[in-house]
Nucleic acid binder design. Structure first.
Lengths: 205, 205
DNA sequence: AATATTTTTAATCATTTGATTAATTTATTT
DNA sequence: AAATAAATTAATCAAATGATTAAAAATATT
């Protein structure tokens, strides 16, 4: 149960974590079998419990890391007092769509598990600090004041335009007759449009 | 295993179906226990298998009905050749947000299960006919042509603005410090804004 | 090299869970 | 009313699943 260096890490512990990340993120907690994870990692099932005690403890770690993976990077962009709302939106859209192309299962995983998990976990994500208290949110409030609507709408809109297509990709691909590569291309195109759209929403009417 | 009339239906069969709808929709297939369903329905566990053979067969029925519940009503609105794009968007937003306020778990359930289920099921939903071949989609294409973007973007945007808040409600409520009633009020406010936003998106830049 | 420690494995356990069975109760038909 | 069929129940089964154990193998320490 030791480890000192933190390199590319082919340690058993990290093989298990990586496998757990893949399996949990793809299938969700309830459908994931510890045996699936062990097989994916190429290790004996008992090692999972040896290193992580239980499925639930392992899941908690993966969940936390996935959530962090999701909000990392956003912090600096949203806190930056030198940039305007449109530039922030642009940067967020770019970064997130690139990230979601690489991790398409991430949002549905997080949203699904968030629904069943306790409020405590949502608090632990620290979203309130990253978003509600950011310079970004100040700018949203300013924009919302002019239109007399709740600034949360603009936050939801931005997130929706970025994230929703990935959550609904099987449906979108079906409706549009797209292959996975086509869908990715569509998301690449989308990347450049979102900030413009959000701006149009804010100025609408 | 009989039944002739289809009234308010307090039959055992319908009690099970209703309980299954509640439990499956809230927890998803993998996390739902047949015992949960039996308890929710107030019936003996064996009756579930007596009436529906297996958990999976029961699930397939619920899944189909939920999907139908989701797209029913949209058909006429989207097919209507008398209405313009904005009016259709307005009607869709109104109807769907009202429906989602009553069934907030529905979209995440459908999107989650769609991801694991075979393409066949997605085909069976018949979305392509309802959407891709509708008058609505024609109008989207027209609008998209002017902007030289894929019309699917506008379809995704509309759906995203309507559905995403419900999929992400735990997060939204956390960020905005909202109680469930506050969230519902926010959605009511939103209902009237979406068509305007979508129009602004289409005309953007 | 000998000893101790850590890691890995195969076998097994205990519980959960979907499903079945056989008996009982209730409803329907004759 | 008697006979038949349908619905319901309690008990149980078999497989799946998370977890543990005891022994073996690999690694580190003395």
């Amino acid at each position: 149960m030791k480890k000192v260096k933190k390199e590319v890490d082919n340690t058993t512990e990290d093989k298990i974590k990586e496998a757990a990340r893949v399996v949990f993120t793809r299938k969700g907690y309830a459908a994931a079998r510890t045996r699936d994870i062990a097989e994916e990692a190429g290790i004996n099932l008992a090692l999972l419990n040896y290193y992580f005690r239980s499925k639930e403890k392992l899941f908690d770690i993966i969940m936390m890391e996935n959530v962090q993976r999701f909000i990392v990077g956003a912090k600096e962009i949203l806190a930056d007092e030198e940039t305007g709302l449109k530039e922030k939106t642009e940067k967020i859209a770019m970064r997130y769509i690139d990230m979601l192309i690489l991790n398409p299962d991430l949002p549905l995983f997080i949203l699904s598990e968030l629904r069943t998990n306790p409020d405590q976990l949502i608090d632990k994500m620290g979203l309130k600090n990253v978003i509600a208290k950011s310079n970004y949110f100040l700018q949203l409030k300013e924009a919302a004041k002019a239109q007399k609507v709740n600034p949360l709408h603009y936050f939801m809109n931005t997130l929706a335009l970025i994230v929703f297509p990935f959550v609904a990709s099987p449906m979108i691909m079906n409706v549009g007759n797209l292959k996975p590569a086509d869908f990715t291309a569509l998301m690449q195109e989308r990347k450049k449009l979102i900030a413009k759209w959000v701006e149009a929403i804010i100025k609408a009417k």
